[in-house]
Amino acid sequence: MTSAPLHDSAGIEELLGASLGLRERKKLKTRRAIRAAAFRRFAEQGYEATTIDQIAGDADISPSTFFRYFPTKEDLVIRDDYDPLLESALRARPANESLVESIRHAMMEPLREIIAVDHDDMLTRMRILIDNPVVNARNQAEMHRTRDMLLNVFCERNGRSPEDLELRVQIAAFLAATFETILYWAQRDGQDDIVTLLEQALDAVAKGFNH
């Protein structure tokens, strides 16, 4: 069951592209249009059966243009545009705030807006990750990029070292909890409120840190 949209896709593009210049906003709009065309195909006929030529045709672009935005079909699934949004929100949080509380505040409100529009695409994405070991393996590598971004933010903010094992473990725990929660949500056909689930997951992580 899909939530009723709170914002249209243009609103999400504005949210994601708020700190971007005109050229980058245009790229973001094209990238999201390509991904939307791809995910419609994935939902209709499956990931494996969908070709890049079909996606390009649906998006009214050439295959060469497709490859300028996505090097492979797998990149449609494993990459999104949300990390810059999370990074910007985290940098705005107080320096003395705990990692879990900073992530909670930085993540939840944008997520509500994103899921209102991208609910079905996120569900399709997770189903592909569940069913396709190759895509899932590449997604694990992509999560390392998010880990590095979070590590850099908290090191810069708190003067901690990238070699700080406690910080690295906390970030790894957050990412694992987030992925497990989204996986749980997808396995239940996206019928739960994912924001509520993630709040529960972060509570569980915070309790673990305090024991």
Rank of each mutant, 00 (worst) to 15 (best):
V77D: 06
F70Y: 13
T51C: 10
M108T: 03
D60P: 01
A89Y: 12
D60L: 10
H119I: 00
D75V: 01
T50Q: 07
A43V: 05
F42L: 12
Y69V: 06
L85K: 12
L90S: 14
E101H: 01
P110M: 07
A37E: 04
S102H: 02
M108D: 10
M107W: 14
L86R: 11
P71L: 03
I103P: 00
T72A: 12
A106M: 04
G46V: 02
S98P: 12
A49S: 11
D121T: 13
F70H: 08
L90H: 12
L76T: 07
F66N: 02
S98G: 15
Q45I: 11
A92G: 03
T65V: 15
Y69R: 05
E97D: 15
V100M: 10
I114R: 00
T51R: 12
N96K: 14
V117M: 01
R35D: 01
L90F: 13
I52E: 08
E44A: 14
Y69F: 15
F66Q: 00
Q45A: 07
D58M: 06
A59H: 00
A38W: 09
S88W: 13
D121P: 00
A95H: 07
Q45T: 09
A95V: 13
L99E: 14
P110V: 00
F66I: 04
I55W: 08
T51S: 15
I103R: 07
R112L: 01
M108I: 05
Y47C: 01
A59M: 04
Y82H: 11
R40M: 06
P110Y: 01
F66E: 05
I34C: 13
I55Y: 11
T72W: 10
V77I: 13
R125S: 07
D53S: 13
V117A: 05
I114V: 02
I78C: 06
R125K: 10
E97R: 09
V117T: 06
E113G: 00
D53V: 15
D121A: 09
L111Q: 06
T124M: 09
A59S: 08
D120P: 06
R68V: 09
I61W: 03
D120F: 00
D83I: 15
A49N: 04
F39W: 07
Y82D: 08
Y47E: 04
I55E: 06
A37C: 04
A43Y: 04
S102L: 00
A89N: 13
R104E: 04
P94E: 02
D120A: 11
V100P: 00
V77F: 07
E109S: 05
Q54C: 12
A38D: 08
E48Q: 14
R104Y: 02
D80L: 01
A116I: 10
P63G: 04
E74N: 05
T124C: 10
E74F: 07
L85T: 08
T51G: 13
A56P: 11
I115G: 00
A36E: 09
R40S: 09
D75S: 02
A116E: 01
L111R: 04
R125T: 05
A106W: 07
S98D: 14
S64W: 08
R40E: 14
T50I: 11
E113S: 07
